[in-house]
Design a protein around this nucleic acid. Structure first.
Lengths: 199, 199
DNA sequence: CCGAGATGGTACCGATCGGTTCGATCTTTG
DNA sequence: CAAAGATCGAACCGATCGGTACCATCTCGG
């Protein structure tokens, strides 16, 4: 029962609790895989409350995706930052974080990409595009600091590797995917920035 | 009106025509984005006929995905084979084919991956896994013939690149994606098979 | 030219969908 | 204690869902 009822009536807290619980359910079951009634039952909230806070199922979906995009992006950026100043180490740290994610039993791929894959609502597609933009910024920054010959190019190639590893881990098997992707990323970095990462 | 009615009553041909028309509609609109009634109207066939041939909407979906997987896999393999005996040329040809696909205005990502992204039916997930298996076989074969140090590793890394490029092209913009992925693939090949492709 | 079978069109079924409404219950505020 | 507001639970709405049934029509093999 993720939403503690009554103890303290605080709309902000209720909204946050709905958001968190709905994020997990919608990720596991898919956006169209669970109706509003069942969703409310699962997260322990009435339909009226949910609709008062989010107006529409699409509104809830957008809020869920925005929050998740924020959380995931920050998590990856923090992982890179925690690896120190060496861009090569930062890149390795990003893929270590991804590997950890892939091994989580609830892992089911990138929620934003999954959402855009069949939900053709424009707002959802925009959220996904912005999410990928954030990934790209992070990776391009690493490429720049590593002294890559063409940082935007390497950034985009690394983005493909990140998303490809996520797809493969979700739909073809987790085994080794994170480590294999990490090696490929470092190989691409070495090829694009021959004298990188060791100063 | 993709299904020419009546002219020749031939169940096999009707089934094939439904399959082809449904493939296009379900790819464009998404598996859950169009109901059976509307689907039948769009492809010009009655519900009874559709259900007689495929039994169930899920049955139709599985048949559509199987046929599409077959077609796409063969197209990529043929593209590689047409590039001659040099494995490096074959790899480049695969990504040239992908680039052509990405630029098609109806391109919306990998249909199998899209289907598995939110449709948690086991049969669909199995079809997607087998589809990725075929990609992997093609790419691992190229890696082997190129003399890669670890062909299964390189094959899986190239698979990530293929799927990642497809995701990025679908959700982050087509511009340059195919060419960037091609360069990354060749860089990975060069790094893994130093003396490859030039004999 | 007639019977068998494939098809189209339509009405229909129960279930579920997203969304609204209402009254009872609870907490907080004054 | 009283008023305000948040929440629950359930009933309810029209629309749509996947799937079935029925019958007229059409094509083809004998």
């Amino acid at each position: 029962m993720p939403v503690p009822k009554g103890s303290t009536i605080d709309p902000e807290r209720t909204r946050a609790a709905i958001l968190e619980a709905a994020t997990a359910v919608l990720y596991e079951r898919g956006l169209d895989g669970v109706g509003v009634a069942e969703l409310c039952a699962l997260i322990g909230v009435s339909k009226e409350t949910l609709y008062r806070h989010f107006g529409t199922k699409d509104g809830l979906v957008e809020a869920v995706l925005l929050a998740r995009s924020e959380r995931v992006s920050r998590w990856l950026a923090d992982s890179a930052a925690a690896a120190g100043d060496n861009p090569r180490d930062q890149l390795a740290a990003v893929f270590d974080a991804l590997r950890e994610w892939y091994e989580d039993p609830v892992f089911r791929g990138c929620a934003m990409v999954n959402a855009s894959a069949q939900h053709h609502v424009e707002a959802v597609r925009a959220i996904t595009a912005r999410h990928l933009d954030r990934y790209l910024d992070l990776l391009t920054g690493i490429a720049e600091r590593a002294g890559a010959a063409d940082p935007p190019l390497l950034g985009r190639q690394l983005l493909m590797l990140v998303e490809g590893a996520t797809v493969v881990a979700a739909h073809h098997g987790t085994a080794g995917t994170g480590e294999q992707a990490r090696q490929a990323a470092l190989a691409l970095l070495s090829a694009a920035a021959p004298a990188s990462g060791d100063d």
